[in-house]
């Protein structure tokens, strides 16, 4: 019996200009690795932000671990890596360790103090991601790839059951990108962490994810990568040649 981690039913989000997301229904089970793909402006980020309660839902419902998103409180089970890295203040005076430590706040009650044990946990997480050496550096002084991994450490430090990543590879060069995907795949397999990963890299994510969710304002496809490759809707959308390239890169 699969355990349900994320469930969206007829989910719709709208801004003043109209719907940016409509009629999205899907279920993600524990251990799934879902790639959320689609063109620019297709509502991918809006979808994950709606799941996290960061943008209001206009109709339908979204649940994390069985409870509705707008009243969700079990943040200790979730890790999130946002897209908006460019918003990061380059002179923000906090070290990587301090920022990663903030990821542990979701496990704490008021007053949220960090203990020595917490600091050790931060060190271990940084070590696991191979960035222990930048622990004491200022977050604003890192390269794009280092920042990305530091924020991934922040998302992982509380040992989440669900990891939501929004365009995590945008700032990375192709080689680092590949390593990053492999790392996420590892985390998914070895720790059984459920992963939702937003990307426009349809071809690459297909090699790693167990499921694909194709979005263009509405959900056009949800299923395994194999099905995605053989779906006639997708071939009519991409053209058979592109679909072939995407699906048989390696």
């Amino acid at each position: 019996m699969p355990v349900e981690v994320v469930r969206a039913e007829q989910l719709a989000c709208s801004y003043r200009e109209g719907y940016v997301l409509e009629d999205v229904s899907f279920t993600v089970n524990a251990g799934d690795y879902v790639g959320i793909v689609g063109p620019n402006g297709s509502g991918k980020s809006t979808l994950v932000q709606a799941l996290l309660g960061l943008v209001p839902i206009s109709s339908g419902s979204a649940r994390l671990f069985g409870s509705l998103c707008n009243g969700f409180s079990q943040w200790g089970r979730v890790g999130y890596l946002p897209q908006s890295l460019h918003l990061l203040n380059p002179v923000f005076p906090a070290t990587v360790a301090e920022i990663v430590g903030l990821g542990l706040l979701s496990l704490k009650r008021f007053p949220r103090r960090l203990t020595r044990h917490d600091r050790e946990k931060v060190d271990t997480t940084l070590g696991d991601l191979g960035i222990y050496d930048i622990k004491a550096k200022l977050i604003g002084e890192l390269s794009g790839g280092q920042q990305q991994r530091a924020l991934l450490a922040r998302a992982l430090v509380n040992d989440p059951e669900l990891l939501i990543l929004d365009e995590p590879t945008a700032a990375l060069d192709p080689e680092t990108r590949e390593r990053f995907y492999r790392m996420i795949g590892d985390i998914n397999r070895s720790r059984g962490v459920t992963v939702l990963l937003v990307t426009h890299d349809t071809g690459v994510i297909g090699q790693h994810a167990s499921k694909m969710l194709y979005l263009d304002k509405r959900m056009l496809f949800f299923g395994s990568f194999d099905d995605f490759c053989h779906s006639p809707e997708m071939s009519s959308l991409f053209g058979e040649h592109s679909q072939h390239l995407m699906c048989h890169r390696h």
Binding site: Q49, L52, W75, G76, L102
Partner: peptide
Amino acid sequence: NDLLAITFNEELARVSGV
């Protein structure tokens, strides 16, 4: 820590239960 979290990034802070 809550203040540091919202000062760094409000969205991240919310997802950490702040």
